[in-house]
Amino acid sequence: MINRRRFAASAPLLFGGAGAMPGCSPDPAAQSYETVARQTWRLGGVDGFEGAALGRELVRYATLAPSSHNTQCWKFSLDDKDQRNAITLMPDLSRRCPAVDPDDHHLFVSLGCAAENLTQAALAHGLMGDARFDTARDVVRVALEPARAQASALFKAMAQRQCTRGDYDAKPLSNEELGLLQRAGSSDDTRLLLLTDRAAMEQTLDYVVQGNTAQMADPAFVKELKAWIRFNGADAVRLRDGLYSASSGNPNIPAWLGNLAFERFFTPTGENDKYARQIRSSAGIAVFVGTTADKAHWVDVGRCYERFALQATALGIRNAFLNQPVEVASVRPQFATAIGLAGLRPDLVVRFGRGPTMPPSLRRPVQAVLV
């Protein structure tokens, strides 16, 4: 999911470096990206909202959740007369990614991430959210009831959470930190494996390389990925979705140059070398697996992952997806057996550790996702 890949960092070498290109240095569009990013990722106040305004504010927090290729594959409905008693999250099938996610697994995981954000934000605003998956309509309905307001550490971390696709410092986490992550990322229906042994991490790397090599040999996968990349701040601001290349440490460059660089430098060898470096710089790898492979459990996996990510953020720990072993159907059962999950479907693979903050991705405005 939520699988954010970058073209090779050597891309600017195509024309002698980003700084040598007209329009590659900071410009009004890039400055507007900074402004929009600050507005998008703000932690708002928890007082003064009611009725429809409160519903829209809760939806805004929900949209800060991660989604496959940052497609933001969701829609929201504010239900009942005063528009605050329930919020329904629906899949936006027009934003699905059939090449990387043919059975919509990541799409429903993304709905779960958004539902978790919504319930955390609701509690901070004095509402208890009860999220239930409606199997008849394939939607998540979050019923809201008055409760004592509690702005938890997870809520406060929401405005800083990101999938940080850079190198980490390779330092181990404490047992206390690992325990907090384990509790945050588990439920009755979702199991979390934390792999911190270097041999287990190298074994996972082998499956990441297998999956990545297979995906990059698939023209449909490469075409789909490229369609969601935003090579500069102006395009990121204009569309408010997709994978902003600067979020992976790449330069802000014109789209035409980005397309050339992608074709030239996005290679299996370059990407596999990058994943090897990044895994070896991580403190560990988290694997999420639902007890059953269906949409309701995928939503629960998404909720568990989002709690894990928010708890990690609160602790100053970064994370990023390594989903190739679970996205390639021929690799998935081999990977499951290797990590002791034979007969189950691993849902998400995530590396974690301490590292730098990267530029955040953007989100579409609330009015664009309300129905």
Rank of each mutant, 00 (worst) to 15 (best):
F7R: 01
A8C: 13
A9L: 12
S10I: 09
P12S: 12
L13D: 15
F15H: 12
G17S: 10
G19A: 11
G19K: 03
G23C: 09
D27I: 02
P28R: 07
P28L: 09
Q31C: 06
T35N: 13
Q39P: 07
L43H: 10
G45T: 08
G51T: 02
L54H: 01
L58Y: 01
V59A: 02
Y61H: 14
A65I: 03
Q72I: 06
C73Q: 08
S77D: 13
D80Q: 11
D82Y: 00
R84Q: 08
N85D: 14
M90L: 15
S94Q: 03
V100F: 08
D103H: 09
D103L: 07
V109Y: 01
V109H: 02
G112I: 00
A114P: 06
N117A: 09
T119V: 15
Q120A: 15
Q120Y: 00
G126T: 09
G129F: 04
A131M: 12
R132S: 12
D134C: 10
D134V: 11
T135W: 00
D138Q: 10
V142F: 08
Q150H: 12
L154K: 09
L154F: 10
F155Q: 04
R161M: 10
Q162L: 06
Q162P: 02
T164M: 04
G166H: 05
D167E: 13
L173N: 04
L180Q: 15
A184S: 13
G185F: 00
S186N: 08
S187V: 10
S187G: 15
S187Q: 05
D189M: 04
T190A: 15
M201A: 04
M201T: 05
M201D: 03
Y207S: 03
V208W: 00
Q215V: 07
M216T: 02
A220E: 10
F221T: 11
K223T: 14
E224A: 06
K226M: 10
N232G: 01
G233S: 03
A236S: 14
R238E: 07
R238K: 14
D241V: 06
Y244V: 06
S245T: 06
S247R: 01
I253Q: 07
W256H: 13
W256P: 00
L257Q: 06
N259L: 14
L260P: 15
F265I: 05
F266A: 07
D273F: 05
R280I: 09
A283D: 11
V287Y: 09
W298R: 11
D300T: 11
V301I: 11
C304E: 03
Y305C: 10
E306I: 07
R307P: 08
R307D: 07
F308C: 15
A309D: 12
L310F: 07
T313V: 12
T313Y: 03
A314D: 14
R318L: 04
N319G: 09
F321M: 13
N323L: 01
N323D: 15
V331I: 13
P333C: 06
A336I: 06
G343R: 00
L344C: 11
R345T: 14
P346T: 04
L348K: 01
R354C: 12
L362Q: 05
P365E: 04
V366C: 06
L370I: 11
L370W: 01
